[in-house]
Design a protein around this nucleic acid. Structure first.
Lengths: 160, 160
DNA sequence: ATCATTTATCTTGACGTCAAGATACACGAT
DNA sequence: ATCGTGTATCTTGACGTCAAGATAAATGAT
């Protein structure tokens, strides 16, 4: 009888006509991801990064040397609007973690490049972040993780 | 090979030392809940409500007649800060969907009451919202939904 | 009865996000 | 070469959120 069960019990009493199965799953998903996001944020904060900042830096890092992508590339990899991406790049540039370099091939666009400082920051944060993600899933056996991944993959396929 | 697989493949190439299993599950969770939140928002918008507004109205509705709770009660049921709850109540009050009534037993506190208009709004939205949640899970069999619920319940128990 | 502590709510200022539109350049057809 | 359309990025204004602190009333110890 967790918090979501209590919510569902209230609905069943007040609106017995509503089917609560999907509601329960989505409620657990929402609460879970809120908790997870807070845990992730805490660890990244110790490395001086927000999860938004890490999102961009990690995208650049995993793209491989020379760690440069256009804002458009970053946009297509990160589920945020163009205005949000501009803002993220502005903040990272102010902090000296990335720099905008001119794209000689297309003057409409720029390339966002990890600076030396940015590279060091993301390398350090990435290790701690991945370890933290593993810690957050300690409760699960290898089989359970595989099952969960399979179900989430199928669910996500509805949208992507 | 979905988008998350592509991200993991990049990491394995660049940082083969990192274990990507937990990262993959969390990545799918994040992308999935972003998509789900957008779908939910769209349906509620057609009923003139944001998901934040619906969250409060639904909490009042399922608490049963006379549909009144203190801000503190709402706070304990909804995973937001006190400042956020004050702001939500302010907006709902401006829209005429709730009203603040004095609590005769404790002058520090008020009670947030659904208005007649608020009750009608939440009743209409709730049906559409639940139907939408079911639609979003169409891809799953009854067994898969049960499995997913079991796994999410266990995961959530880590935090609550 | 008084006062310190606790409780309940609200205020403030900062941040991240989005949608919509603005700006500037590239590219293809003529 | 020029023009119209498409593309890439940035700007603006509004909204929702949070942490930290302010305000006001209840409560309990003396």
């Amino acid at each position: 009888m967790d918090r979501v069960d209590k919510i569902l019990a209230q609905w069943r009493k007040e609106r017995p006509d509503l089917d609560t199965e999907a509601m329960g799953i989505m409620g657990r998903l929402n609460r879970l991801t809120t908790h997870l996001a807070r845990e992730v944020e805490q660890v990244l904060q110790r490395h001086g990064l927000s999860s938004s900042a890490f999102d961009v830096l990690a995208t650049l890092r995993r793209s491989g040397a020379p760690y440069r992508l256009s804002p458009g590339d970053l946009l297509s990899m990160t589920m945020v609007s163009s205005g949000t991406m501009t803002n993220r790049i502005d903040q990272l540039e102010k902090a000296g973690l990335v720099e905008r370099v001119l794209n000689p091939d297309d003057r409409r666009s720029v390339l966002i490049a990890l600076t030396e400082v940015g590279l060091v920051a993301v390398e350090g944060a990435a290790g701690a972040h991945v370890a933290n993600q593993q810690r957050l899933m300690q409760a699960f056996s290898a089989e359970e993780k595989a099952e969960l991944d399979t179900l989430l993959r199928k669910f996500l396929a509805t949208f992507e």
